[in-house]
């Protein structure tokens, strides 16, 4: 936080016997806790939180202001000259758009997001277990490969993946896989597959760290009792990594829900398959003449991620910490 280098804590030997280290660690943790709970620190935290929330609050206020007010004055003038309208929300939710009412896009967003999240969590958990506790040759290399895949930006794989869906796979003139050619609402499959592919490397990596930290004795005890891999996974691993699964699910849910790029390419912009984000991007009109709608649109689309986050928040924090702090 501060730019001044902190001098090493006096009187503490660099390499002390175990007990001393433990004690000093305790006291330094206590010191940190003490410092962070002073009034000044609380004030700073409140100030940061306020500054952080201010733009969102401004957006929220704007979403209730009439079009002309939004376009001509800042949201803070609301306090001196309050004018409230629900017109923006009306436009966004039930607007003139003949088929573009937000409700159907809302459903599309769910249809895209929920399976994409479930697939990633299930597959990543299975893969993480296999990579951590099933002995097979080349296991480390597979894990290294998965880890390395995270570096590939998803933009690079858009065109190949799209041609995989729409043209199939042809090697040297031989059609190895036919085109999927999914029409109408079946095109959701493309989006699910794309999101699952893009989500898996991080998911496997994250869960692998958790699963591999579980004590070996647990697995040995279960094996002695006659448990195979299936039972081990279901009865031992899954219950123990629930916080990690949930935090991965939140990550994946938010990422898919907020995604525009993948949806644009694999779902298209039609009312049958396009999610909320695609509709939001069109909402302002061809030349942005209706941009006041974005204020309300943003809040409509924010609701679901907020609900997900707040209802699963305690898992989220626990899951994050479990990954970073060991021992």
């Amino acid at each position: 936080m501060t730019s001044t280098p902190t001098p090493p804590v006096g009187g503490l030997p660099a390499k002390a016997p175990g007990k001393t280290v433990d004690r000093s660690r305790e006291s330094s943790a206590a010191r940190v806790r003490k410092r962070l709970s002073t009034t000044a620190a609380s004030v700073v935290a409140v100030v940061i939180a306020t500054v952080w929330t201010l733009p969102t609050a401004g957006l929220l206020i704007s979403s209730f202001r009439p079009e002309e007010e939004i376009k001509n004055t800042g949201w803070w003038t609301f306090f001196t000259d309050p004018q409230i309208t629900l017109r923006n929300y009306g436009d966004v939710l039930f607007g003139t758009a003949s088929q573009g009412q937000l409700a159907s896009y809302f459903v599309n967003s769910f249809v895209i997001t929920v399976p994409s999240t479930v697939f990633v969590v299930v597959l990543a958990a299975l893969a993480a277990y296999a990579l951590a506790w099933v002995d097979f040759p080349g296991r480390d290399w597979v894990f290294l490969g998965v880890f390395a895949l995270q570096i590939v930006p998803l933009q690079m794989s858009l065109v190949p993946l799209l041609s995989f869906f729409s043209e199939g796979v042809t090697v040297a003139g031989v059609q190895l896989m036919p085109a999927w050619d999914l029409q109408g609402a079946l095109a959701f499959t493309n989006v699910w597959v794309a999101h699952t592919i893009f989500g898996l490397p991080l998911g496997i990596f994250l869960l692998h760290n958790f699963v591999s930290q579980l004590p070996r004795s647990l697995f040995e005890a279960a094996r002695v009792d006659g448990a195979g891999h299936g039972v081990l996974f279901r009865r031992v691993v899954v219950p123990l990594v629930v916080p990690a699964l949930v935090s991965l699910a939140i990550f994946q849910f938010l990422w898919v829900w907020n995604d525009l790029l993948v949806a644009l390419i694999f779902a298209g912009g039609g009312v049958e398959t396009a999610p909320l984000t695609v509709r939001l991007a069109e909402l302002a009109g061809t030349r942005g003449e209706e941009w006041q709608r974005l204020t309300a649109g943003a809040f409509v689309s924010i609701i679901v991620p907020l609900l997900v986050f707040f209802s699963l928040q305690r898992y989220f924090v626990r899951g994050l910490l479990a990954g970073s702090v060991k021992g």
Binding site: A97, S98, G100, E282, G285, T286, E290
Partner: peptide, 9 residues
């Protein structure tokens, strides 16, 4: 096309 919203309708 790039035409959207009301103009598209």
């Amino acid at each position: 096309a790039s035409i959207r919203d009301e103009e598209a309708e």
